[in-house]
């Protein structure tokens, strides 16, 4: 494949490309930060289920004539709280229950969409997203979200560590574990809702899971692990957007493949043996 460098540098000067780079950086960093805790708490499938259930929110929006941008955030927050309640109430296996929840919501959303004959726009964008379609208002929102995540996780880092390690040790110390978990799940649903626009339903969980797992392979120390995950999240997003511009590839999948390549490298990295055990 011949690389058209001149075209590439011209692209970099275009505002939509710059927004894509900045938006990717913000989303990737947020995903890496939140993902590092999500993975340790075994909530990565929860994030995935949230992503798939977003389709229900969007089809409800289409049915009611509300823009997906408006309905997605409140829908996913309510949905996340509902699922958390369901998990506590039934005490079934988390992965099985999440499977039930997202199958049902996927089925329901397809049924709803079958009533809406004129829904043409954007099922493709919904599934795979488009970083290049990021608007300036999205950037503001993404920055705010990253800020909220940094402040919340930064100020509660020590408590989060203990809750992650052992709920009972945390409870004995007087930490309100349930409130912590609820706050975390709400934050996760916010990130999923915001990220869907750029990376789509199918790829959103990769943003949360992959940088964290790669970081885990590279580090045994908690704060270092979080820092690596954040760096990888942001770095892969930038690299992915650039690569997609360079080779004219779809942006979301290119970012995910960049993350996956780094995961493979970390897995095969010889230093890992010394670090792990």
């Amino acid at each position: 494949m011949a690389i058209d460098w001149q075209n590439f540098f011209e692209l970099l000067h275009l505002p939509f490309m710059q927004r894509a780079l900045l938006g990717g950086l913000l989303l990737g960093t947020t995903g890496g930060l939140l993902g590092s805790f999500t993975v340790l708490r075994q909530l990565s499938f929860f994030g995935d289920a949230l992503g798939h259930s977003a389709l229900l929110g969007i089809s409800l929006g289409v049915l009611l004539g509300i823009s997906p941008n408006v309905i997605l955030i409140p829908f996913l927050i309510v949905f996340a709280i509902g699922v958390t309640y369901l998990l506590e109430k039934t005490r079934l296996w988390n992965d099985a229950l999440l499977n039930i929840v997202y199958s049902a919501s996927l089925a329901l959303s397809i049924i709803i969409l079958s009533f809406v004959k004129d829904y043409q726009g954007g099922i493709n964008q919904l599934l795979f997203g488009d970083v290049l379609a990021i608007r300036p208002t999205d950037l503001i929102f993404n920055s705010l979200l990253l800020g909220v995540c940094i402040v919340f996780l930064g100020l509660t880092l020590r408590a989060q560590m203990l809750v992650t390690l052992s709920e009972s040790l945390a409870k004995v110390r007087g930490i309100a574990v349930r409130q912590h978990e609820l706050a975390f799940v709400i934050l996760l649903s916010l990130v999923v809702a915001v990220a869907i626009k750029s990376v789509g339903v199918l790829l959103v969980s990769a943003f949360i899971v992959m940088p964290a797992c790669t970081a885990r392979l590279l580090s045994d120390r908690f704060s270092q692990y979080v820092a690596i995950s954040v760096g990888l999240g942001g770095g892969c997003a930038i690299a992915g957007v650039l690569l997609s511009a360079l080779f004219n590839l779809p942006s979301g999948p290119t970012i995910v493949m960049t993350q996956f390549t780094l995961f493979l490298i970390a897995m095969l990295w010889p230093v890992r043996r010394k670090v792990m055990l």
Partner: peptide
């Protein structure tokens, strides 16, 4: 859970903290 990346230093340090809102 052996998959949680935490050292002995990390864990014992958590015992020292007050665990309210604080800069890490």
């Amino acid at each position: 859970d052996p998959r949680i990346p935490m050292t002995v230093m990390d864990l014992v340090g958590l015992g020292w903290d007050r665990l309210g809102l604080q800069l890490p």
